[in-house]
Amino acid sequence: MSEFTPRSARHGRRRRRGNDEAWEWVQALAIAIVLALIIRYFIFSPFSVSGPSMLSTLHNGDLVIVNKVVYLFRDPKPGEVVVFHATEDKDYIKRVIAGPG
C-alpha cells in the first residue's frame, strides 16, 4: 500500500517554507537597520562643510565622515581636523592647531 499525501498538506508545507524564508528576510533586514542606526549615531556620522574657513583642505559643500569613537580614548592632536558643537544646532569643522599648555 502506497502512502498518499493530500495536495493541501503538500501545499501547506510549501507555504510554511515560504513564510519561514520571508521571516528570515524580515529578521535580516531588521538587524541590518539596527546595526546601521547604531553605527550612524554612535560610531560614524556624516557632516557637510559650510563656508570657506577650511579651504585648501575642505571645500564648501564637501561631505566628511567623522569617527566619534577615537576621542573617547585620546585627546585630539595638533593638525587633526575635528567637528564640534558650536551651538545646539550648529557644528564647526576646524583644524586643531595646539594642545593644552
Rank of each mutant, 00 (worst) to 15 (best):
V34H: 00
I43G: 03
F47S: 01
A36G: 02
P78C: 13
D62H: 03
E80T: 10
M1Q: 06
M54L: 05
V69M: 14
E3V: 11
A98G: 13
K94F: 00
S2R: 09
G101Y: 10
R7D: 15
D20G: 09
S50E: 10
V83Y: 00
L35N: 00
T57W: 00
H11V: 15
V66Q: 05
L55Q: 09
E24L: 07
R15C: 10
M54F: 00
Y71R: 12
I39D: 08
E88Q: 14
V69P: 06
N67Y: 08
Y41Q: 11
R40E: 06
Y92S: 03
A30V: 04
N19P: 04
G61K: 03
G101D: 08
S2I: 05
L35A: 07
V26H: 00
D62M: 03
P6H: 14
W25E: 01
F42E: 09
S45N: 10
A86S: 13
R95I: 03
A9S: 14
A30Q: 02
K77D: 14
L29P: 01
D20F: 09
I39F: 10
I65L: 15
H11K: 15
S53R: 02
A98N: 10
W25D: 06
V83Q: 01
V69W: 10
P78M: 11
P52T: 10
W25Y: 07
Q27C: 05
L63E: 03
H85T: 07
D20W: 08
W25N: 02
R40P: 04
V82T: 07
K94C: 06
V82Q: 05
R10Q: 15
G61D: 01
R13M: 11
N60V: 03
V96M: 09
F73A: 07
K90R: 13
V82C: 10
P76V: 08
F4G: 03
G79C: 07
S50G: 07
P6Q: 10
F4W: 13
F42Q: 13
Y71V: 13
F44K: 07
V81F: 02
E88W: 14
I38M: 06
W23F: 05
P46C: 04
